[in-house]
Amino acid sequence: MHSEAILNIVDILTDDLEPKTLRLHSVPASLQVLTALRYYAIGSFQQVVGDLVGLSQPTISRIVSRTSRALAGKAGNFIKFPLSPREQLAIKQGFSSEFNMPNTVGCVDGTLIAIKRPTEREDAYVCRKMFCALNVQGVCDNKKRLTNLVVKWPGCTHNAYNVHME
């Protein structure tokens, strides 16, 4: 990610993440965002990320959880399917001129996101690749911006269930 994008995320999430304490050892919002982004990017163990930034695994766990909730809470401000005819026309023209794909408003793809083994309904989350996952669908426009994201189906769910946009 570019540094401007990271700083923008820090600005957006600071009110949600900034410690509401005067304790000397609280973790500033900027470090929380950087830590969570590092964890998302490398997909490693929290202990490894903690070693990189000098924080304990339990602290990394709280940071990732808090930052993930904050990001999810703001997602609707940024991930929006183009509903107006004007927006749709602009995207169709972009797909047509850039990729020779006429009448296209979005490209759809899905992925399996590995998750920790749940304590309830574990079998529902075991995907065809035999690990616990969420079946996630994303739609992007011609500028590769997410316009729709569905993150609610367990890993065993067939991709056909994800076609309903929310």
Score class of each variant (00 low, 15 high):
Cys140Tyr: 01
Leu134Lys: 02
Ser65Ile: 02
Tyr40Trp: 15
Val10Asn: 09
Lys74Asn: 14
Val64Met: 07
Pro118Lys: 06
Leu24Asn: 14
Ile60Phe: 12
Arg66Val: 03
Val48Tyr: 09
Val27Cys: 10
His164Trp: 02
Gly106Glu: 02
Val105Tyr: 04
Lys152Cys: 05
Glu166Arg: 05
Glu87Leu: 13
His2Phe: 04
Tyr125Lys: 03
Thr157Ile: 04
Ser96Val: 00
Met1Ile: 01
Arg23Phe: 08
Leu17Ala: 09
Arg38Gly: 03
Asn135Phe: 01
Lys74Asp: 04
Val27Asp: 01
Arg66Cys: 12
Leu52Asn: 06
Asn135Tyr: 00
Gly138His: 00
Val105Asn: 12
Ser61Ile: 00
Leu34Met: 10
Glu4Gln: 13
Thr147Tyr: 01
Glu98Asn: 08
Met130Trp: 02
Ile60Lys: 09
Tyr40Cys: 11
Val108Ile: 14
Asn159Met: 01
Ser44Pro: 00
Glu166Lys: 06
Ala160Cys: 05
Leu34Ile: 02
Phe95Trp: 11
Met1Tyr: 06
Ile113Lys: 06
Met130His: 12
Cys107Val: 12
Tyr40Arg: 09
Glu166Pro: 03
Ala72Asn: 12
Ala70Thr: 06
Gln57Val: 10
Thr111Val: 10
Tyr161Lys: 12
Ser68Phe: 02
Ile60Gly: 11
Ala5Leu: 09
Val49Pro: 04
Val64Cys: 14
Leu34Glu: 05
Arg86Leu: 15
Pro19Glu: 15
Glu4Val: 07
Pro85Met: 05
Gln32Leu: 07
Leu83Ser: 07
Ser56Asp: 13
Asp51Cys: 06
Thr147Pro: 00
Gly155Ser: 07
Cys127Gly: 08
Leu22Gln: 13
Phe45Met: 04
Gln137Gly: 04
Pro85Tyr: 08
Arg128Val: 00
Lys92Gly: 08
Pro82Lys: 13
Ile113Trp: 07
Gly76Thr: 03
Ile113Leu: 10
Arg128Thr: 05
Ile42His: 11
Lys116Pro: 00
Cys107Gly: 14
Lys80Ser: 09
Ala72Met: 13
Leu22Tyr: 05
Lys116Ile: 10
Arg121Asp: 15
Val163Ser: 14
Asp141Pro: 01
Asp123Ala: 11
Ile113Glu: 05
Val163Tyr: 10
Cys132Phe: 12
Tyr39Lys: 11
Ala133Thr: 04
Gly43His: 13
Val105Met: 07
Asp11Phe: 08
Leu134Arg: 01
Gln47Gly: 11
Gln137Ser: 03
Phe95Lys: 05
Lys74His: 15
Glu18Gly: 03
Gln32Ser: 12
Asn77Phe: 11
Lys80Leu: 13
Ile42Ala: 10
His158Arg: 03
Leu17Trp: 05
Ile91Gln: 01
